[in-house]
Computed example of a mutant assay.
Amino acid sequence: MSRPPVTETKDQRRLGFPFRSGRISLDFVATVAKRDMNDREMITDGESLQTWLWVSGLPAAKDPIDESAVERARVLREAINRLTRARVDETRPVPTDVEILNEAAQRGVPFPKLDYDGLSVHPSAPVPVDQVLAIVARDAVELFSGKYHDRIRRCLGHDCSLYFVDRSRQGVRRWCSMAACGEKASSATYRKRHSGPA
């Protein structure tokens, strides 16, 4: 597969995929757009999964990625989604989701190699997709058990369904991105305050 160009807009979207959560595992959850609204699936086939891996900066998976591998990726993603929701809602996680995550995380992962210039990283050769997804799973394990486990938030943008990690000093961040949802909310509040009588 030839690599598509990586593009970034103001809200850091790359080829239509949002990357505003601050963690790769939550960015993976965001490959279902508008969750609980119209649930638009963005990982529709092996090529779209390969594209997401590329724009996210993860190692390449061996082509082709078949439908069974895509389904395993979705199963992992939805387990991470439910575990994230449980964390945000302060409810007990479902043991099956924990098992799915742990099983995915224990697979071998590709390792970066330092180039001979001593400064740059030589990308690993393509590996089976499950090994790449193990990086995502391990990120989720670290997130749920690490120092930011109580800083996972759901964006308060009215048409946004993204989760993000709040690294603000006071821990009061409300939006996945000020440039995306924050400015929309500020503009809507301004218009409401300054609108004349009907």
Rank of each mutant, 00 (worst) to 15 (best):
V165F: 06
Y163L: 06
G171M: 08
G146H: 07
R74P: 00
D139F: 07
C181T: 09
E142D: 15
C155K: 02
P110H: 05
M42Q: 15
R74I: 13
D166P: 04
T189S: 14
P5H: 10
E99F: 10
M178Q: 13
R167S: 10
E103A: 15
P18E: 10
R85Y: 03
R173H: 07
E47L: 08
P123Q: 09
I43R: 03
S48W: 08
L83A: 00
A185K: 08
V98A: 02
R138D: 09
I152H: 01
S124E: 12
R85G: 05
L119A: 14
W54V: 04
I135V: 13
H194D: 14
P4I: 14
D159K: 11
V132E: 01
Q50P: 00
I24C: 05
S145W: 06
L49N: 00
S56P: 00
A30I: 09
D150F: 07
P128R: 02
N102Q: 14
S48T: 15
A69Q: 15
P128Y: 03
A86C: 00
V165D: 03
Q106F: 12
L83T: 01
R107Y: 13
A79P: 01
R173D: 06
A134I: 07
V98M: 04
R138E: 09
A134K: 05
P112M: 07
V6R: 01
A140F: 01
E183Q: 14
D166G: 05
P128G: 04
R85V: 11
E71P: 00
K113C: 10
W175T: 10
R13H: 12
D117V: 08
P59S: 12
P197A: 08
L119D: 12
R154V: 09
R153P: 02
M37K: 11
D11V: 14
G157V: 09
K10W: 07
D150K: 14
R151D: 11
C176L: 12
N38P: 00
T91L: 07
R40Q: 15
E71I: 09
V29E: 01
R87C: 14
S120L: 05
K184A: 08
Q106T: 15
F17V: 11
A79L: 05
S21Y: 03
V127C: 04
L162T: 03
A33I: 04
S161H: 03
E47S: 10
V132Y: 00
R82D: 07
A180C: 15
R154N: 12
A60S: 02
V29I: 15
G118Q: 11
A61N: 05
G108E: 15
A61H: 04
T9M: 05
A33T: 04
R82C: 06
E183T: 14
R87M: 12
S186C: 05
R85L: 11
D45V: 04
